[in-house]
């Protein structure tokens, strides 16, 4: 089993505020990990720190063995595109969509990395299988969609790339229970291949049973991730 993500001693925050403290976290290929935590305990910040979107961070983040972290306090987002090109897809809270562009444009933009761009049509077909409601909406500007449809577009855009690590921030936030259940089921259907998926959620019941492993994030520290620590002394057992 290969490691997709390995975080060591990560601290991160915004300006004077430290949100994450000394986090160690490992994700193996094929895993679906749920991060459970209350509002304001650092779930989103953890995902954003991996994507290089926090104000400052220190510690090591390795994606597929390549260092993407390090000590940074130079403006957030400066390196995000490079991290994304190394195989990360973050579907953030609030979706970060392009309101004037159509659904088809969004799917194409998700396939922005060069290899994916060439086969974007095929990928688009695949996405429409995962999210059938989008098929009818391809030429509609995203600004006119409903919340659930937008979330689908955001997820589909993230899935279009050849990401080996999918980070999904609260897929069910602000959606009716039925819709969010459908979304999570759709996410479970996705074939991860040699990649992995991390979902941050407030609500334990939504993820229970569906994930390989659950960890909790409390006050900026990871708890219960026994496997997260395994790597440290693995060699000595």
């Amino acid at each position: 089993m290969s490691e997709v993500l390995r975080i060591e001693n990560l601290s991160a925050g915004y300006d004077a505020l430290g949100v994450l403290h000394n986090i160690d976290f490992t994700v193996q290929a094929g895993e679906r990990i749920g991060i459970i935590g209350l509002n304001g305990h650092g779930k989103s910040t953890l995902l954003r720190a991996i994507a290089g979107l926090t104000g400052w961070q220190s510690g090591s983040i390795k994606l597929n063995g390549v260092e993407i972290g390090g000590v940074r306090s130079q403006g957030p987002g400066r390196f995000t595109h490079q991290i994304v090109r190394r195989g990360l897809a973050l579907m953030p809270q609030g979706d970060a969509l392009f309101h004037g562009l159509t659904v088809a444009d969004h799917l194409d933009s998700g396939a922005y990395t060069r290899r994916a761009w060439r086969e974007r049509m095929r990928r688009r077909e695949r996405m429409l299988e995962v999210f059938p409601p989008l098929a009818k909406l391809l030429s509609v500007p995203v600004g006119r969609l409903s919340g659930g449809e937008r979330r689908m577009v955001s997820l589909a855009r993230g899935l279009m790339a050849d990401a080996s690590l999918l980070l999904i921030d609260e897929p069910s936030l602000g959606l009716a229970p039925k819709i969010s259940k459908g979304l999570i089921e759709a996410l479970m259907r996705i074939d991860l291949g040699s990649g992995a998926m991390v979902i941050a959620e407030q609500n334990l019941s939504r993820l229970e049973g569906a994930m390989t492993r659950l960890v909790t994030l409390h006050a900026g520290k990871l708890k219960g991730g026994a496997a997260a620590n395994m790597g440290l002394l693995g060699g000595h057992h």
């Binding site: 601290s11 925050g13 300006d15 004077a16 505020l17 430290g18 403290h21 000394n22 400052w56 220190s58 306090s73 520290k221």
Partner: peptide, 15 residues
Amino acid sequence: RDKRRSERRALRTGE
């Protein structure tokens, strides 16, 4: 200066 200071402080505070 304040920002640097609080960054450093935030980095230092662990369990």
